[in-house]
Design a protein around this nucleic acid. Structure first.
Length: 537
RNA sequence: GAGCCGGUAGCUCAGCUGGUAGAGCAACGGACUUUUAAUCCGUAGGUCCUGGGUUCGAUCCCCAGCCGGCUCACCA
């Protein structure tokens, strides 16, 4: 190439280099080529980073416009329709010497562009050499159909909107003529890079963008559903002096001015119920919870939880509400109550199956758990999970919970309410009105995963204190994930809390289900990852 | 935390029983005025994850480490 002194030196002007950016130095020849084009654009007086572009039509709208013109037979003698101004990122380029085809992509789809020397003139046409995949351009020209039938903008002029200085990892794609499916060749598939550089993942994968559009529709639909039922959306603290509402390990932080320890919330529950005490009959919150635990395909350290509480309702009523909510959201967001999750058909039509925790577990065990001693349960669990010494430390509640996880959960593919959980597992739920050994609680399972958790909320402050204390005893006996005592919460309840039904729904998991995504990381834009090497904290 | 698999060009991947590397796409130069995985000719591009070891010689074998994926454990 040339050694133009105005060309920026890529080794010194590369932004924010870090130790972890070593690969960029290796790729310098690719970055350098784009820097040179950038300099060449400037030399021609073409601003590589524009301020504005007057777009007349999004890509999809432009295509519709042409089809309308065809239907009205209003094309001119050249077969041209209206002139449009479209803008987008160049995602493919086919140069033919004195003509060139490209596709640009905008927020609404793709449209093909056609450039010809004799239309653009020598100067504008030759400047096309300075374009790269990834550049943003604006184009003006009439719509027409190519010989192969694709609606295309014939560029009479084009404008640089933003020069891409770093190649996006575009794959080549084709449409299989038989199946009509899009086949991507050698795309961008390294999982870690895709999550770490989600911007690049989104830029080259329209289907990934679609997942997050769907996520947005789902969340909006959840809100609409509750708003329509006179629920009040509220915001409660994420930084809390005492964490609670679930059995989980919290993140711990410190507030300097108050010189006090704070926890990131693990659930919204206790604050929302304080609001029920305060006199709001129906409240909900959708927000992030944080749990300092492992990461796998269904767990991210921060995740989105929807919790809603309704005065005067019990868990039966909340079950009906959850059924209606799921079917409504599915129909609003994906257009059907029958969905496919990882090749399994799932019908979300109410009513869902209902089975009691004990009944389901007995079925899994093949015997009656009430006839089994703790050591017998422990032996059974060891047979399933291997001889883990921690099993000997577990109390009965924990054992039952683990056995349920091992024997039952996976089989709950069709939507199923598991109801009436053992008291030890449910310190915030009311005792069952007919059976004091269990609580009025349900969990909803779909596709073998827990999606919702709900109870007739415990509103007896004396009972609540007892439950907290027995959790404390469990902790002293060695169980780590027990619920801490929250005196302020009890104080609130002492003022008087109406009977209340409450539900928590894991929003990420709901999105996984409806978007047919196998990993929670595929429905979180920026999932938690180990920090990149070389970054300063 | 454990097991399995992996880390080779910007991206996606080959690389045999050890002889210091290849393809496609992307890039660069050239041809081509309705293509669409455009095509054709040519060029350049590599700390084979890191550090030790074995060997005349290591991308390959051994050890340790780092990072990732999957499965399991934990948790929603």
């Amino acid at each position: 190439m040339n050694s133009d002194s105005t060309a920026p030196d890529p080794t010194t002007s590369e932004p924010a280099p870090s130790k972890g950016a070593g690969q960029d130095e290796e790729a310098n020849y690719l970055l350098a080529a784009r820097r040179e084009k950038l300099a060449a654009l400037e030399e021609k007086g073409m601003a590589p980073f524009a301020y504005h572009f007057e777009r007349t039509h999004p890509s999809s709208r432009a295509a519709e416009l042409f089809q309308e013109a065809e239907a009205q037979e209003s094309l001119n003698e050249k077969g041209h329709g209206d002139t449009v101004r479209v803008a987008g990122r160049i995602v493919s380029w086919r140069s033919h010497g004195k003509s060139a085809f490209a596709h640009i992509e905008d927020g609404y789809g793709r449209i093909q562009l056609y450039f010809r020397l004799n239309v653009l003139g020598e100067e504008d046409f030759s400047a096309l050499d300075l374009l790269d995949l990834g550049d943003w351009i604006g184009v003006e020209g009439p719509l027409f159909r190519t010989r192969t039938g694709e609606i295309t903008v014939q560029a009479t002029s084009w404008t640089m909107l933003s020069k891409s200085l770093r190649p996006l990892p575009f794959g080549k794609e084709e449409t299989d003529p038989d199946s009509g499916e899009r086949v991507v060749h050698s795309g961008f598939s390294d999982t870690q890079s895709r999550y770490r550089q989600r911007y690049a993942d989104l830029a080259v994968h329209p289907e990934v963008r679609e997942v997050f559009r769907l996520r947005s529709r789902i969340v909006r639909s959840l809100r609409d559903f509750l708003d329509a039922r006179d629920y009040l959306e509220v915001e409660t603290p994420i930084l809390q002096p005492i964490y609670g509402g679930a059995a989980a390990e919290p993140f711990v932080t410190h507030h300097n001015a108050l010189d006090t320890r704070l926890y990131l919330r693990i659930a919204d529950e206790l604050y929302l119920k304080r609001l029920i005490v305060g006199g709001f009959e129906r409240v909900y919150e959708v927000g992030k919870d944080f749990r300092n635990e492992g990461i796998d395909r269904s767990h991210n350290p921060e995740f989105t939880m929807l919790e809603f509480y309704q005065a005067f309702a019990d868990y039966e009523e909340m079950m009906d509400l959850v059924e209606e909510m799921l079917v409504t959201v599915a129909e609003n967001a994906v257009g059907s109550r029958r969905i496919q999750y990882q090749r399994t058909e799932i019908d979300l039509s109410p009513p869902f199956q209902r089975v009691s925790f004990v009944e389901a577990l007995n079925r899994g065990l093949g015997r009656d758990l009430h006839q089994m001693t703790d050591p017998e349960l422990a032996v059974t669990l060891k047979e399933l999970r291997g001889d883990d010494p921690r099993i000997d430390e577990m109390g009965r509640g924990r054992l039952l919970d683990k056995l349920f996880g091992a024997l039952v959960e996976e089989s709950l593919v069709a939507p199923t309410f598991v109801v009436d959980y053992p008291v030890v597992l449910s310190p915030l739920a009311k005792l069952h009105r007919d059976d004091p050994r269990v609580t009025e609680r349900f969990e909803l399972f779909v596709a073998g995963r827990e999606l919702a958790n709900a109870f007739s909320e415990l509103n007896d402050p004396l009972d609540q204190r007892e439950r907290f204390l027995s959790q404390m005893q469990l902790r002293e006996a060695g169980e780590d994930e027990t619920h801490p005592v929250d005196d302020d919460y009890i104080r609130a309840m002492e003022y008087g809390m109406p009977p209340t039904g409450g539900v928590g729904i894991g929003v990420d998991r709901l999105v996984m289900l409806l978007a047919d995504q196998p990993s929670i990381r595929d429905v979180i834009l920026f999932p938690t990852l180990r920090p990149e090497e070389g970054r300063q904290g």
